[in-house]
Amino acid sequence: QRKQPTEIVNIDVPSKYGAWATNNKTGVSGGAIDMDSRAAAEKAAIKNCEQGGRNAPCKVAVWVRNGCIAVAQGKSGKKWTAFPSAKEPGLAEADALRQCRASGSSQCSIVANEGCSMPKY
Rank of each mutant, 00 (worst) to 15 (best):
G115I: 11
N23D: 10
C108Q: 11
S109M: 13
N55W: 02
A44P: 03
G90E: 05
A72G: 06
C68P: 14
D95N: 02
S117E: 00
Y17Q: 10
L97Y: 05
G104T: 06
A41D: 04
A112L: 12
P119F: 09
S15L: 04
S105L: 10
F83P: 11
M35W: 05
N23Y: 08
S106H: 01
E42Y: 12
W63P: 09
K120G: 14
N48A: 02
M118S: 14
M35L: 15
N23C: 06
P14I: 05
M118E: 15
S85Q: 01
S106E: 12
G104N: 13
C108L: 00
I110W: 12
Y121V: 11
Q51H: 01
V9F: 11
N48F: 08
A21W: 05
R54F: 11
K59C: 02
S109C: 08
S103Y: 00
G104D: 07
C49D: 03
Q99F: 08
A45R: 08
A21D: 01
N66E: 07
E114N: 03
N24G: 06
I110A: 06
A45T: 03
G74L: 04
S109I: 15
S76E: 15
A96K: 00
D12T: 14
G77E: 10
P119N: 05
K120I: 13
N55H: 12
K87W: 01
V62W: 03
R98A: 10
I8M: 06
V64G: 10
P14F: 02
I69S: 09
K78Q: 14
E42F: 12
C68T: 01
E88A: 11
S103D: 06
G27D: 05
R101I: 14
S103V: 05
T26R: 07
K3V: 10
A41R: 08
I33M: 13
M35R: 13
W20Q: 03
R38F: 03
A102C: 01
G115H: 04
T6Q: 12
Y17T: 06
I33D: 08
C58K: 07
V62K: 04
A21P: 01
G52E: 08
K87N: 09
K47I: 09
E93M: 05
R101K: 14
A19M: 05
K87F: 11
I11P: 13
E7G: 01
E114P: 00
G27P: 11
K25N: 15
S37F: 07
T26H: 03
G53R: 04
K79N: 13
G27C: 11
T81M: 11
A40Q: 14
D36T: 14
L97M: 06
A94Q: 08
G90M: 07
V28Y: 09
L91Y: 08
E7L: 13
G90T: 06
C58P: 09
A21K: 02
A96N: 01
K78Y: 07
K120M: 11
D95T: 09
A45I: 05
G30I: 03
L91G: 08
P84E: 01
W63D: 09
I8D: 00
S109T: 15
S117P: 12
G18V: 06
G18S: 03
R38M: 10
Q1S: 12
R54Q: 15
A19G: 05
R2D: 10
A32L: 02
I11E: 09
P14M: 03
K43C: 07
D36I: 04
W80L: 15
N55Y: 08
V111Y: 01
A39D: 11
I46S: 09
N55A: 15
